[in-house]
Write a protein that binds this DNA or RNA. Structure first.
Ligand SMILES: [Mn+2]
Ligand SMILES: [Mn+2]
Length: 559
DNA sequence: ACCAAACACGCAGCA
DNA sequence: TAGTAATATG
DNA sequence: TGCTGCGTGTTTCATATTACT
């Protein structure tokens, strides 16, 4: 009864919203990158704009769906009226492809098991219990010409095969709009629905991500090779992987825009080659990469190859100018090993000693972190299982304005939850002054009102750092009551030093008391779990700063 | 920050 | 027929 | 014991429909 009386909520999205989204994307790219588009590509846009509304809509539907081929008889869009007419309009504008032979894999996908059965009832003995894979194998064994299969199926089901033309142009437009390959038209929808809620930062319309068409082509080239890499790895084609490495080694890197992609691919491929024992080739790839962990892996490759002297030199190169703390520590671990091999003496590395709490707890179903939290609960006001999310969220609140500051090149489009350079060294250097001012401001005033204000002002907006499910004003009040401001500031400064590296490794639990200084960060270690390097680094830092932290080592008492 | 990832846990093999 | 994976959708 | 590599689980918008086993 209540259900029938409840008013229908108005639809969140306008009719044909997807056409409008596509048009927004096209307009933006065309005005921003007109000189990077060829005459043929601009003509595709012109032709799409000239279509009647239902045909425009259908084109957007088709390029958004898994294809490339579709059966026209299965296109069901009642709101578009006569689908045949829309297809004819697309055809006339050169935006539709038709085929009598889409290739075997597409046929497998386009027709259901029942349709295959019916179409091949005469040619094959099709038992009802037979699965699709078996039936397809039996059909393939007929060894017909490729087109004959399609003829047979279509003769049985009716309909024809169609595909949207100029898919590559659509992909190009999306790449130019977003600057990456993972975002697309769905991001418009999620934003309109409020599922994603992006902060209204100032967009940078001056700085273009791609300076020229060659830069775009280079980016697309590395993307293609990355795709090839996954296919080759999936197929366990070691010959192909070696060929890919050779190709990568003779391809020069010319544009900064795609450097990260190139280096990432070098690192990934090299790591796979390492596993296959191709050490020299892996080493060459690592030498091409300027992205961690390339230099560390090269040191390990040299060590594994028995080239102790080169491995030692590589470690010393890293130690003299590390890219990050992780790299420095790796080099500091490898160096003594190779020096021993060379008969050289090295000073022993000091071992970490962290305050440790030994616990015997009854085995239970819940996670060991929660078991410890429950064990500790009676002794504290509150114990929260937060890992990285708490300190990261506080960091986001404290530096929200700096994170979303309109720095050149930071925000290319309206669907970002962090600036483009968030995890690069340049993040800090490009915002040196405003970060210094913000730190001074936070040092001079009480923190709680600042954080409460930020929490209220920005609540709900997407930020890579902030988990709004965790934060509420009570928690902030409790936290700021217990954690002395200088200690929070020290943590934030370390996070600012390397936001990419220092966003992880925070302890599992935070236990809160009632007075300033009355709190503890606790890393839980179950049987068999070791402290990770990132966790060690934070624990060392906490010890240096006098921030209360402990490692809780749990053993199960079975009886 | 590319659900082709990032993160943390948990184990095995090796000195 | 229930459980699953993939797909399309807003 | 420390170091290393490798495999695992968790987490991604939420919901309806379709196809398959
Ligand atoms: Mn943890
Ligand atoms: Mn832990």
């Amino acid at each position: 009864m209540a259900d029938t009386l409840r008013e229908q909520a108005p639809p969140l999205l306008a009719p044909f919203y997807y056409r409008d989204n596509f048009q927004r994307l096209c307009d933006t790219v065309e005005s921003r990158y007109q000189d990077l588009l060829s005459a043929a590509e601009r003509d595709v846009l012109r032709r799409w704009r000239g279509l009647p509304l239902p045909a425009q809509c259908l084109y957007v539907r088709l390029v958004s769906r898994v294809g490339p081929w579709f059966r026209d008889d299965k296109l069901a869009y009642p709101e578009l009226g006569d689908i045949g007419a829309a297809l004819a309009a697309l055809d006339a504008a050169g935006l539709l492809l038709r085929t009598a032979d889409p290739g075997w894999p597409e046929l497998e996908r386009l027709f259901t098991l029942a349709e295959w059965r019916r179409a091949f009832a005469a040619e094959l003995n099709t038992a009802p219990g037979q699965g699709k894979a078996e039936l397809l194998a039996a059909a393939a064994a007929l060894d017909w010409s490729p087109a004959r299969y399609a003829d047979c199926l279509l003769a049985s089901t009716g309909g024809a095969l169609v595909a949207p033309a100029e898919l590559e142009v659509v992909e190009l437009l999306q790449l130019l709009f977003f600057g990456n390959r993972r975002q697309g038209l769905t991001d418009f929808v999620l934003s309109d629905l409020g599922i994603a809620n992006y902060y209204p930062y100032a967009l940078d319309r001056e700085q273009r991500l791609f300076s020229c068409r060659e830069a775009v082509a280079e980016y697309q080239g590395w993307s293609q090779l990355a795709d090839d890499y996954w296919i080759l790895r999936e197929a366990e084609d070691s010959e192909g992987l070696r060929a890919l490495a050779d190709l990568l080694l003779v391809s020069p890197l010319q544009y900064d825009t795609s450097a990260q992609r190139y280096w990432k691919l070098c690192n990934r491929l090299a790591r796979e080659l390492e596993r296959q024992g191709e050490l020299p080739l892996a080493g060459e790839l690592y030498a091409r990469s300027e992205l961690h962990p390339a230099r560390e892996r090269l040191a390990r490759v040299l060590e594994a190859a028995g080239d102790w002297a080169a491995a030692r030199d590589q470690c010393q190169l890293i130690l003299a100018g590390p890219w990050c703390e992780e790299e420095y520590e790796a080099a500091a671990r490898i160096l003594p090993r190779v020096c021993r091999r060379l008969g050289e003496s090295v000073p022993a590395r000091r071992r970490d000693t962290f305050t440790t709490l030994q616990l015997q707890l009854p085995r239970s179903d819940e996670a060991v972190e929660l078991a410890v939290a429950h064990y500790l609960a009676p002794h504290w006001q509150a114990v929260h299982y937060v890992e990285n999310s708490l300190m990261n969220s506080l960091f986001g609140l404290a530096f929200w304005e700096q994170i979303f500051a309109p720095v050149p090149g930071a925000f290319h489009h309206a669907f970002q939850s962090a600036p483009a350079d968030m995890y690069q060294q340049g993040f800090r250097t490009r915002r040196e002054e405003m970060l210094a001012r913000r730190l001074a401001q936070l040092r001079n005033g009480p923190l709680l009102p600042e954080l409460l204000a930020a929490c209220r002002r920005y609540r709900g907006y997407d930020c890579r750092w902030v988990d709004w499910r965790l934060l509420d004003e009570t928690l902030l009040w409790q936290l700021l009551c217990c954690i002395p401001a200088p200690q929070l500031l020290a943590v934030w400064e370390r996070m600012l030093f390397d936001p990419g590296e220092n966003r992880r490794g925070f302890p599992d639990l935070i236990a809160l008391g009632e007075r300033e200084g009355d709190y503890c960060l606790i890393e839980v270690k179950g049987p068999g779990d070791q402290l990770q390097d990132s966790q060690r680094r934070w624990l060392r830092f906490f010890a240096d700063q006098g921030i209360p932290a402990q490692v809780a080592r749990v053993v199960w008492c079975d009886d």
